[in-house]
Amino acid sequence: MIGIVNYGAGNIFSLTAALERLGLKYGMINSEADFDLYDRIIIPGVGHAGTAMKKLVDTGLVPKIKSLNKPVLGICVGMQLITDFSEEGNSQMLGIIPVKTLRFQEEICKKVPHMGWNQVYPDNSCPLFKGIKNETYFYFVHSYFIEFNSKFTVAFCNYGIKFSAGIQRDNFYGVQFHPEKSGEAGEILLKNFAHL
């Protein structure tokens, strides 16, 4: 059963709706004890990464999250939270995966936010992307991205610059796109996570 960390960072209606459609059971995590009720954890998030981090710190759940050895999936800003640092508000993040969250620069000559369906190139050996082919489209909405890293990037995307669409370190996973809005491909990914 999936536990969703409830720290007040944006709306999670679409995420819970997607889990319900897929028949995946879930519940909300509001306290440290709640983590024991679930065998995998999702950290959602939309909006400002710095603000989201502050809200997460305020819950007091940070030490517990860092110590988890169950599969954890950060989605969008939830993914950015597990990095070291975000240029959004120059904020320290959880530091679980040693990569940085950066802003799309004007030099790439692209529109920001990066909004819409873009192609993802997954690492075939990553179980989160099992059954997802190269160049599969996922739905993105973000102005900040996680730098490409040869060690921790498990799926990349190009938008003027090559960046991380998915990252992994041990049991911690993160995806920049919204699987709950990415049609069938997103549903495959959520099911993969549920069966890790």
Binding site: N11, F13, S14, A17, A18, E20, R21, Y139, V141, H178, E180, K181, S182, G183, E184, G186, E187
Partner: peptide, 30 residues
Amino acid sequence: VARQINIPFTIGGGISELKDAEALLNAGAD
């Protein structure tokens, strides 16, 4: 709509205050 479909959607018409927008956000509008 948010319960049933797996692609993003926008809703418009008659939104003039923050609370209108917030209600739609909480109902699952992207």
